[in-house]
Amino acid sequence: MTKDLRELVGGVWKDVLDLDVVNDDDDFFELGGDSMQAVDVVYRLRDAGVDLKVGDFFAHPTLHELSTAISVAASAA
């Protein structure tokens, strides 16, 4: 996982959840996120060029897990 990708994903989370800080081990849903906000995150990341499915987001709810899954999928493509 690259730092840029982690910062991109974290930045989207902060925008959607209206937070100042998001840490690698933070769980989106434990931070107060819900399924509609998760869909918003997925669409924002897609707009930024990240190939992500909604199911991927639910399978990897922490910032570290999601960023790593995106990186691994991009490497395999």
Rank of each mutant, 00 (worst) to 15 (best):
L52A: 02
V16G: 05
D47N: 13
Y43D: 02
G55W: 01
G10M: 07
L8Q: 13
G49D: 09
W13L: 03
V42L: 03
L5V: 04
G49E: 04
V50H: 10
L19T: 11
M1Q: 12
L63I: 02
L5Q: 13
D47E: 15
L52R: 10
L66G: 06
L8N: 09
T2H: 10
V12H: 11
V72E: 05
S35P: 09
D26R: 11
V22Q: 10
V9S: 10
A76K: 11
K53D: 09
V54F: 13
K14D: 01
L45H: 09
E65V: 02
A76R: 12
R44K: 13
M1G: 14
R44E: 05
H64M: 02
P61E: 10
V41W: 06
D15P: 01
D24K: 12
A77M: 00
A38R: 12
G55N: 12
D24E: 14
F57M: 09
D4Q: 15
D24H: 08
W13C: 05
T68M: 08
A59P: 01
L52Q: 08
V39A: 15
D34E: 14
V9T: 07
M36P: 01
L31R: 13
L19S: 06
A74L: 01
Y43L: 12
D18T: 14
I70M: 04
V72S: 03
L17I: 09
A69I: 03
F57S: 05
S75G: 11
V12Q: 07
G10L: 09
P61V: 08
V9G: 10
